[in-house]
Amino acid sequence: MIMAVNSQQIADRQAMEKIINRYPPERRFILAIMQDLQKHLNYLPKEALKMTADHVNAPMTVIFSMATFYKAFSLVPKGRVVLKACDGTACHIKGSNVLIDEIYSCLGIKPGETTADGDFSLETVNCLGACALAPVLVANGKVYPKVTPAALRKIINEYRGQDNDSNTSE
């Protein structure tokens, strides 16, 4: 195991340990543990996967296989602001691709990517169940209905440079 070398790393480790130790050391809790870790850390660091494997006494292959299977998990840090563009049928017809292109021209990120400054991530989701509001965009859990390219630019500016760590994912 890699030794934590500075106080930040020690603190991170302790935080991860705390989350993991909330669950009984059984394999059936792997998903729940990883969801919890993802929620608190915004991604699943390698160290977190190792600690999970040790905790439930499962091989790393099992953990890694699951962590890469589910879209809800990310192995690289997600942005401070997570944009979710709905690309379900209704939003698709109502031009979600235009929004996705617009996000690319504003921020230079495609679905699954994060800006270099770590401010924004973009994900697509397959229907949020709000088809009447199509096209829908969700930014850090807040739903924006009937988004036009102009509205999109406003939303992005709203979040840009804003430094509070209000990461209410989901």
């Binding site: 390698k46 091989p59 790393m60 292959t61």
Partner: peptide, 22 residues
Amino acid sequence: NAISTVLRGTEKRVSTPFDEES
């Protein structure tokens, strides 16, 4: 237990965790 399937769908393949030496 050095290899498993990773990722999903059309990207799915067999590998070691992180494509690193296990």
